[in-house]
């Protein structure tokens, strides 16, 4: 059940250029949240941001949600400026979640930028040691130091300054030369998701992508966050998604 909860910031750590890991204590929401779900945060009114800001959840620990937030505008600036002990209002869980993948199946989790968030959560929950998780950015400054993330993450940068050289889809393509997952889950910029759609159909690997769109209500009421469907018409990213079967949406 969706809950409006007053959250308390437990920690806020700058881990890379404009990139923050933030933990917010919301006991009611955190017991219900699943990988793929998102929450919407109400930026402090002094920020001048009018609407809530939606974020996929990167994990749960001790009644707190983990979020990965990049400071890109007035709403995210206000949120990434919060200090431990500060309060912020949280609404969730919102949206659908990834399917419950069978524990023995091998997942590849392909994330770009803050799109990594829901995949970190899915990685934790699925927990198959054969899973692979890839986090891509344009350049090394966008990605966090090893100490902040699980050692199982592989990095990739467009300019080759950290990890694999090339975008996430290029690197996944190289992996496919001697490995193959049962399923792919991906989240990130439109280009990455399009690349994953292509890859999944080419190699016939079932894939799920988590989409991003500007949202007003985040609850399925306003139809503002529409994404075109392959069968025609539109789906609402907030309520019908954000997770879709890769071939279902037109990007």
């Amino acid at each position: 059940m969706k809950v409006q909860e007053n959250g308390k910031v437990v920690s806020n750590t700058g881990v890379a250029l404009n990139l923050h890991f933030i933990e917010i204590k919301v006991p009611k929401i955190s017991t219900q949240i699943k990988p793929g779900n998102f929450v919407s945060l109400l930026p402090p009114s002094s920020s001048g941001a009018f609407l809530r800001r939606p974020f996929s959840v990167a994990g749960v620990q001790d009644g707190s949600l983990k979020l990965v937030i990049r400071d890109i505008g007035k709403g995210t600036h206000a949120i990434t400026s919060l200090a431990p002990g500060d309060c912020i209002e949280v609404l969730g869980p919102l949206g659908n979640s990834y399917p419950d993948f069978e524990p023995d199946k091998k997942l590849w989790l392909l994330g770009g930028g803050t799109g990594i968030a829901s995949l970190l959560f899915l990685h934790d929950v699925h927990g198959n040691p054969a899973d692979r998780i890839l986090w891509g950015g344009k350049t090394k400054d966008e990605l966090p130091m090893e100490t902040w993330v699980s050692s199982s993450i592989t990095f990739a940068t467009d300019d080759g300054t950290r990890g694999g050289h090339g975008n996430v889809v290029d690197v996944a393509r190289r992996w496919l030369k001697d490995d193959r997952p049962d399923y792919i889950a991906a989240c990130g910029p439109r280009g990455l998701l399009k690349g994953v759609q292509q890859l999944a159909s080419e190699y016939k690997i079932p894939a799920w992508i988590s989409c991003e769109e500007f949202m007003a209500c985040g609850m399925g009421a306003c139809a503002g966050c529409a994404v075109p469907l392959a069968v025609g018409g539109y789906a609402r990213v907030c309520a019908d998604g954000p997770v879709f079967k890769a071939g279902e949406v037109l990007l």
Partner: peptide
């Protein structure tokens, strides 16, 4: 079906 996305954006006070 509705209009082509993006369908909404934020502005000052609305």
């Amino acid at each position: 079906p509705g209009n082509v996305p993006p369908r909404c954006c934020e502005v000052d006070s609305g």
